[in-house]
Amino acid sequence: MSFFAYPFMVHALEAGTIVAVMAAVTGWFVVLRRQTFAGHALSVMSFPGASGAALAGLPLPLGYFAACGIAAAAIAAGSRTDNRRNLAQESAVIGAVQVTGFALGFLFLSLYGGILENLENLLFGSFLGITATQVDVLAGVAVCALAFFAVVGRPLLFSSIDDLVARAGGVPVRALEIAFLLVLGLAVASTAQITGVLLVFALLVAPAAAAQQLTSSIAGGIGLSVAIGLLVTWTGLLLSYYTDYSVGFYVTTLAFAVYLAARLFRRLVRS
């Protein structure tokens, strides 16, 4: 039976495509800014977000977005000294935020008492049961995220590479940093709905990291990152459909393979 005959498969493809594009573009900036750890911490926030929402009787995605937003604001607030990015402090703050998120997640879960439906799907992803409404929400989020990068792309790039010079030139570095983390939180919360909380990296970091191994051109790098993200997502969905194993597993494995291949390729080219 054909792939496209099932509405859930069509929705899964639509959602996967949207998420792959958004995560790849966001991820390119994440890798450039060396904020992979922040990306991971924010993805983990989906867990307290979802269990908190279950406890409060709210829709799960609302919990995702709220928890990611709060964590993004906390990381942005705690990671500067003397008005400059302090990478050592930033990673310590992220670690603290992440572990607090985990702890709160377990607390909410035990307070909730019941079994959180689809906990495994929450952690490892599922393409089953993605509704048309969810696809619309994802599309809306993606449009916002991409519009954000279209508008602030250059100043964000400038402040990512050279914080001090950008600030001297009048770029609102601090505001951009907070806004970026919030958009990252949004992107991560959306991606987590496909890949699961624990495997967000597969679409957020791996395509962008592979692309930056292969090219140092900006447009080329973002384009390549998107292409890898799409390839990995589509292939993962197809394999998952035909073999019944989790889509998160396939997407992650494929993304890792692409990253590894990119590293090997670069090494060969350089030697």
Partner: peptide, 9 residues
């Protein structure tokens, strides 16, 4: 970036 790094859009 020295030329247009501070520009939005």
């Amino acid at each position: 970036l020295g030329l247009d790094g501070t520009r939005f859009g």
